[in-house]
Amino acid sequence: MIRYDLTCKNGHAFDSWFASASAYDALERAGQLSCAVCGDARVSKALMAPSVRENVKAPARRLSEPGNPLERAMAELRRKVESSSDYVGDAFAREARAMHEGKTPERAIHGEARLDEARRLIEDGIPVAPLPFAPKRRTN
């Protein structure tokens, strides 16, 4: 796959992926390229700088590994939340309310709540906070 920066004759800049350089050439010759903004068929490659890695000898990073300090901090926060609280799924609002009312023992929980449920919890003085990450997908 190859990504090209493209422009149309109306001055719109956009990019697109192609199977190969020759695939782009074939589509261009056949007149099958068009501007993603205005639909103009007069499209050409824009000037691009190559993507070059700074340290070629550095091992490739897995996409599942955090790549920068913010991603590492978010991953650590997720690990801490998941290891120190119970996941209650979409029963979060019900569980938080039951603990607040003393109907069930208090414990750290995390899960999902609809916006209206979260708003009612906050309005009722039940301490909740949104997490800056989505729950992991459950698979069979």
Rank of each mutant, 00 (worst) to 15 (best):
S84C: 02
T104W: 00
D86M: 05
S84R: 10
R138K: 14
A96P: 09
E117N: 09
E112R: 13
P105K: 11
L70T: 14
R53P: 02
R78H: 03
E112V: 14
V52I: 15
E54H: 06
M99F: 06
R78V: 03
P130F: 02
R78A: 11
R61N: 02
I109R: 02
A129L: 11
R94H: 11
P130L: 07
E117D: 15
F92R: 02
R97C: 01
D90L: 11
V88E: 08
N68H: 14
R94L: 13
D116Y: 15
V128D: 01
A73W: 01
G111E: 09
R107C: 03
A91G: 04
T104K: 14
S84W: 00
A73D: 10
R138L: 14
R79N: 10
A96Y: 05
Y87Q: 09
A118P: 03
A108L: 12
A93V: 06
R79H: 10
S85Y: 06
P132C: 08
K80V: 14
E76V: 02
I109S: 03
D124E: 15
R120H: 08
E101V: 01
A58I: 04
N68F: 05
V81F: 02
G102L: 05
A75S: 10
N140V: 05
A60K: 08
P135E: 09
P105N: 04
R78N: 03
P130D: 06
F133T: 05
H100I: 00
N55H: 13
R78P: 03
E95K: 11
R79K: 07
R137W: 01
L121S: 08
A113F: 04
Y87I: 00
L115S: 13
H100M: 03
L70C: 03
R138G: 10
V88F: 07
P105M: 00
E101F: 07
R119L: 14
S64T: 13
E65Y: 03
A134N: 09
N140C: 00
A75V: 02
E82I: 01
R107M: 05
P130S: 08
A73I: 00
A58D: 12
P105E: 12
I122E: 10
M99V: 06
R120C: 01
I122C: 00
E123L: 14
A134C: 02
